[in-house]
Amino acid sequence: MDRIRSSTIGRSLFRSPDRATERDRAAGHWANFFLHIYPVKVRREELTFRYSAFLGVASLVLFGSLVVSGIYLMFFYVPSPASAYGDINTIQNDVAFGQYIRNVHRWSAHLMVLTVAAHMARVFYRGAYKSPREFNWVIGVVLLALTLLMSFTGYLLPWDQLAFWAVTVGTSMADFVPFVGDATRTVLLGGGDVGSATLLRFYVLHVAVLPTAITLVVTIHLWRWRKDSMLEQGGDQ
C-alpha cells in the first residue's frame, strides 16, 4: 500500500505518500474527499461502544443499502396500479436475485427506523443534545421524521392489500388536522381516495424528493458533528 501511495499515480491520488507520523496521517486525511466528513482527531471516549453504540453509522450504512437496493428495484418497477403489483411479482419470481434485493430493501428500511430511533435515545441519555449541539439534535428530529415518511411512502408501492389499506388509514388521519388537513391530504393523494395518482405521487416522493432531502439534511448533520466534535459540553461528565 505504501509503495502504491508513493508512486507517481499514487501521489496524484492521495497527495501525501507517507503515513508514518501523525502529521503525515493528518495531511492524508485532509487530502481525502471521503474522509472530509470526519474530524482529523476525535475524543478518546468517542471510540468506545458505550459512547454511541455506533447507531449513527449504522443508520447511514442502512441508508446506503437502501439507495443501492432501491436503484436495483427501480429498473423493474412502473408506478401505476395496472403494473405495480405485477412488477413486484416479476421481481420476486423472474428477476435474478430480485426477491433477495427486495428483502434487503425491506429489512434495511425496518432496521433504519429502529437504528435512527435508537440513535436518538442514545444521544438523549448521553445528554449530547445540550449546548452547543442543540441544533444538531433538531436536525436529527427532522431526519427521524424524514425516515418515517420515507418508509411510509415506500409502503404503498407494492400495491397489495397491506399497502393500500395502511396508506388509506394513515392518510385519513390528516382529515382531523384543523384548517390544512383536508388540503394536505388531497394534494398528497392526488384526489379523494388512494388511487393511481397517489401511487405516482408516493413514488416520486419515495425515489426523488425524500432521498434528496435526507441526503442534504444528513450532510448538514454530519458537518455539524465534525465542527462540534472538539467542543466540550456540560459541566460534569
Partner: peptide, 15 residues
C-alpha cells in the same frame, strides 16, 4: 435477514 425472511406480498390492492 434478507436470506431467511422474505418481504411480504399480499393479494393485489382491492378498494
Amino acid at each position: 435477514l434478507a436470506l431467511f425472511f422474505d418481504a411480504p406480498l399480499k393479494d393485489i390492492a382491492d378498494p
